[in-house]
Nucleic acid binder design. Structure first.
Lengths: 140, 140
DNA sequence: GGATCTCTTGATACCTAGTCTCATGGTTCC
DNA sequence: GGAACCATGAGACTAGGTATCAAGAGATCC
């Protein structure tokens, strides 16, 4: 995953600097979704001396490359999820924050139907699913 | 629509005060989605003397009652949409901001399939569709 | 209709997430 | 090894939203 990110940055034509490598490693160690503040705290604890702006800049780069996606949690806060750079949707555990990707499983039919009924030409969509992951389901 | 909002506030057991009535009327005059700042500007132009906090407080109340929903536009900004208090999804015009509601048209099957594949128990979902409305499509 | 109690208000301070600026420092490439 | 340029951290700034609080407006009861 770290390799994947560094490759993507390389392909994007930006430099593989120290801060970027360190942050990529921190993202890899994270499980589930995280906020920019989480990452900054991680970096702070390890005395990495990485600035706020650098964190946001890397997240922006990664999200342009599709390796990270920003989602809107049900409580209105934003979080980032590491993911594959193909079109897909996220399933987020409301309990532990774990995420998995779901590829297109029928959403095309839904958008086509919505387009037909409304007369809109649909160009983008966003689908986010929230629930309980298998671990949290069996835990209680 | 204004009536609907005032009724809902009444049912929610809160007072139908002057500022709330005025804001409800302003929301009614809006077309498509709007931000809290838009509403505040509207009120300012009419010298209504309504505070920022009051605007956010009303939007929160209305959203608890399901008469307004907060969505995340593709550019990452937030906007509010007046809508019916039933479960549904939004179709947003990327050009003019017009919105329409789409009721469930097959999304259940998608969530069931995602649940089956992932082992998650899906409790909530959010689907937002973006595109061009009929007017904007014919305009260019 | 007035007194009273409570809810709501606007002002203001504050907060979080994110962006912009800029001088300094690290990379790349020749 | 040096020049050019990209990336960095610090800190100011912005937007969107929340918390606090004294004062004002609604509802209620008589």
């Amino acid at each position: 995953m770290t390799e994947e990110m560094l490759d993507a940055l390389d392909r994007a034509g930006v430099r593989l600097t120290g801060p970027r490598r360190k942050l990529a490693a921190l993202i890899e160690r994270r499980e589930g979704h995280f906020t920019a503040a989480d990452l900054l705290k991680d970096a702070g604890r390890r005395r990495m001396g990485i600035g706020r702006a650098t964190v946001f800049r890397l997240l922006e780069l990664l999200s342009e490359q599709g390796l990270v996606e920003r989602i809107d949690l049900p409580d209105g806060t934003h979080a980032y999820i590491p993911c594959e750079p193909t079109h897909h949707h996220h399933l987020v555990c409301l309990n532990c924050g774990a995420t998995t990707d779901v590829d297109d499983c029928g959403i095309e039919a839904v958008t086509r139907e919505a387009a037909r009924r409304s007369g809109f030409k649909i160009e983008q969509h966003r689908l986010e699913l929230f629930g309980r992951c298998p671990d949290c389901r069996s835990a209680n």
